[in-house]
Computed example of a mutant assay.
Amino acid sequence: MPGIILTHSGLPDPAQADALAAELAELTCRYLKKERGRTMVMLRHQPKDQWYIAGTSLEKDGRNSFRLEVSITEETNTKDEKAAFHKAAFALLSERLGNLHPHSNVHVIDCRATSYGYGGVTQEWRYQQGSEGLVAQAGE
């Protein structure tokens, strides 16, 4: 159940938003092996005159930037999978947004299964329910 939040510089563009949401969900499902039907994407726009890197606004710097945050359940992905995701996501956003500041970033957030969930239920609870079902079947 990944939660994806992309904050990027500039003004909203509905066509770009649709494309970015679809492409980011696809990358997350491909590289982090998540289910598309449980993937949430939120897009946020930050005016360039209100985004600062090293004390200079993007407006003055003349570049774009982004911060991509993807929340996943801890211990569900390897370091290699996360590294591949970082590379692919940065490449995608470099192409789509263009002229990126090098401090644009991707943050994969590993959340404890006891603290992360949806529908009022934690991922740990879901895991335990699944495990108990498998144990009961094996004992039959």
Rank of each mutant, 00 (worst) to 15 (best):
G3Q: 11
G3C: 06
G3R: 06
I4Y: 02
I5W: 02
I5R: 15
T7W: 00
H8C: 12
S9I: 00
G10D: 04
A17Y: 05
D18E: 15
D18Y: 02
A19H: 05
A22M: 04
L24F: 08
L27K: 01
L27I: 08
C29W: 05
Y31A: 08
K33L: 12
K33G: 12
K34Y: 02
R36E: 11
G37A: 13
G37W: 10
R38G: 13
M40C: 10
M40T: 11
M42W: 01
L43R: 01
L43Y: 00
H45D: 02
P47K: 08
K48W: 03
Q50A: 15
W51P: 10
Y52C: 14
I53F: 03
A54L: 11
G55H: 06
T56Y: 05
T56F: 01
E59Q: 14
D61K: 15
N64L: 01
F66G: 03
F66N: 05
L68A: 06
L68V: 04
V70W: 04
V70A: 03
S71K: 12
T73M: 13
E75G: 02
N77K: 08
N77Y: 06
T78E: 12
K79M: 13
D80M: 01
D80A: 11
E81K: 05
F85W: 08
H86V: 05
K87I: 09
A88P: 14
A88D: 09
A89Q: 10
F90L: 12
L92N: 13
L93K: 02
S94V: 02
L97P: 09
N99E: 03
H101C: 03
H101S: 01
H103K: 12
N105W: 10
D110K: 02
A113S: 12
T114G: 14
Y116C: 05
Y116K: 13
G120M: 09
T122C: 02
W125P: 04
R126A: 14
Q129Y: 03
Q129F: 01
E132H: 05
G133V: 08
A136G: 13
G139S: 15
